[in-house]
């Protein structure tokens, strides 16, 4: 099958965001990382009370205001994009914000990644060979959140697998990722290795395996991602 038709079957970023949003359970406190994960917020089903935490001290972060004129320079996402505060939201200072992170209050974090290893090791803060780098809150969040949900394309722009046997990129946190959401599949990280739970419509398990370095086990209840 040629690449063009395969690309057409890959989930869009918005479809991936919608799938991740379904994962967020009513009553959860969830940290949202920078980049692609910020797309998740507007997709949370309306009947669920999911509270979003932003590392810069927002408990109850809401979406960007509809009207550009309502943007507030003191109400930003972790990626410094406009945000809002939900009714009943609160502000905390930075040490308390990370006490929430490391203190076990985050039910989940949605993070982007360069690579995830089959044992759950996460690489998302520094490119290979980069000088210095910028770590931000990634290491604290990956260690602290009860569930680390990674949202990323399945392969790099060059077509290399991002789900790998062992990281070649600098590690953010060991054994931290619990589930991987890509444009091809949903994969659970378990003590017995990676389990292929869901497939994007039109994508086969063989195609996912071919784009993944470690061996995947098929879930007994393998299903199609609802888009």
């Amino acid at each position: 099958m040629d690449t063009q038709t395969k690309n057409e079957r890959l989930l869009t970023r918005d479809q991936m965001a919608k799938r991740v949003a379904v994962e967020l359970t009513d009553g959860w406190l969830v940290n949202i990382g920078i980049g692609m994960p910020t797309l998740v917020l507007p997709h949370v089903p309306k009947d669920r009370d999911v509270i979003f935490h932003s590392e810069n001290g927002i408990v109850g972060m809401g979406p960007a205001p509809d009207d550009l004129a309502d943007n507030d320079p003191d109400l930003l996402t972790a990626g410094k994009q406009p945000a809002s505060l939900i009714p009943g939201g609160a502000f905390v200072h930075h040490a308390d914000s990370f006490a929430i992170v490391r203190g076990g209050r985050l039910d989940a974090a949605v993070l982007g990644a360069f690579q995830v290893a089959e044992n759950g090791d996460l690489a998302n803060w520094k490119l290979l060979g980069a000088k210095g780098g910028s770590v931000g809150g990634a290491m604290d969040i990956a260690v602290g959140a009860k569930q680390v949900l990674v949202m990323m394309t399945h392969v790099t722009k060059e077509g290399d697998p991002k789900v790998v046997k062992a990281l070649s990129y600098p590690v953010t946190a060991r054994h931290s990722v619990t589930k991987i959401f890509t444009d091809m599949a949903v994969i659970a990280v378990t003590a017995d290795g990676l389990v292929l739970d869901e497939l994007a419509p039109g994508i086969t398990a063989d195609e996912v395996q071919a784009a993944t370095e470690p061996k995947l086990r098929l879930s007994d209840s393998l299903k199609e991602i609802a888009v």
Partner: peptide
């Protein structure tokens, strides 16, 4: 930094906050 004109100590954000 790339020109070697400033030194960097990189600290995870939550650790920076807690160290302070």
């Amino acid at each position: 930094f790339d020109a070697g004109k400033v030194e960097l100590e990189l600290v995870p954000q939550g650790i920076l906050a807690e160290r302070i």
